[in-house]
């Protein structure tokens, strides 16, 4: 800690502040590049059609302000429904990925039994091999189960998709729980189920949060499986709904911009709330 404090100080004196300014310059330019496209879309969603074309970079003023795009989107598509579908699918999948993932991770790390290593490798392979490659048979399977065009099909696929990484990360954390805690409970005749639900599960809460973020984003953003398994009749997720809506009203700039804004803003708000958690998860080495 002491080194960290003194040496860099020397560095910054040696190199002067020019280097710092340059570093900030580069980072600011890149931050601008990352944010500007999104910013342009959002400000134009609140402008009249004329203003969108006349001066795309201007902020909406009282003269140019218009919500007509949003009105059109809400009128012409079942946006609220798509949003609700995405919520249901994401939350249900997330719940099962966390619960079942923690249970599998506990079984694999806590007990010795035949096939343990094989099952662990089976799950590990799923981290690298995308579930999409099995789409042909997944669609077959879902139509045999009469689940095509249902949200259930999506939830099942997303649970299978999320489990490998969840098992991997949660195993790492469960392994770190001191043996004494569990052994003490066992001496008191506490059942294995109770050990898992009342001792292990609360202790891995931070890991669960990390897994939650990693699981949630791909599910919310996915287009492939909604496109193939639940493409219509009110079962679209928000990503698919927006894609279909824009395809249909591609020339209506107000509507397109509004639809994009409606898809972007909730994610950005959630991201800003949970970014600390997410970045800590990414940088803590949980996914190495």
């Amino acid at each position: 800690m002491l080194n960290q404090m003194t040496i860099p100080q020397k560095l910054s004196i040696k190199h002067g502040s020019g280097k710092k300014v340059m570093m900030h310059g580069v980072l600011m330019i890149y931050t601008f590049i990352a944010l500007f496209p999104i910013f342009v879309i959002i400000i134009n969603a609140f402008k009249t059609r004329k203003a969108i074309f006349k001066d795309p970079l201007a902020l909406p003023t009282p003269d140019t302000f218009s919500m007509v795009g949003f009105e059109q989107v809400l009128l012409r598509s079942e946006f609220e429904l798509f949003f609700a579908n995405s919520m249901v699918v994401t939350l249900l999948s997330l719940f099962f990925v966390l619960l079942l993932g923690a249970m599998v991770a506990f079984a694999l790390t806590e007990y010795k039994f035949r096939g343990n290593l094989f099952i662990a490798i089976l799950f590990a392979m799923g981290i690298m091999i995308p579930i999409r490659l099995g789409t042909v048979s997944i669609l077959n399977l879902m139509s045999n189960l009469n689940l095509v065009n249902t949200l259930t099909a999506l939830v099942l696929v997303y649970i299978a998709q999320g489990l490998p990484l969840a098992v991997y990360i949660l195993s790492e954390f469960i392994r770190q729980i001191p043996k004494e805690l569990k052994e003490a409970a066992r001496c008191d005749n506490v059942s294995e189920y109770k050990i898992f639900f009342t001792i292990v599960l609360p202790l891995i809460r931070p890991a669960l949060a990390t897994v939650a973020v990693f699981t949630m984003i791909p599910i919310w953003n996915d287009l492939w499986f909604p496109l193939i398994l639940a493409p219509g009749e009110g079962n679209q997720t928000i990503t698919l709904g927006v894609q279909q809506f824009i395809g249909q009203y591609v020339t209506d700039w107000n509507s397109v911009l509004a639809a994009l804004t409606l898809a972007i803003v909730p994610v950005l708000v959630l991201y800003l709330i949970f970014s600390r958690q997410l970045i800590r998860g990414l940088t803590s080495g949980a996914v190495k």
Partner: peptide, 11 residues
Amino acid sequence: LIYVSISVYPL
């Protein structure tokens, strides 16, 4: 069960 039937088996 879910992982094998919806990910491993289809692949």
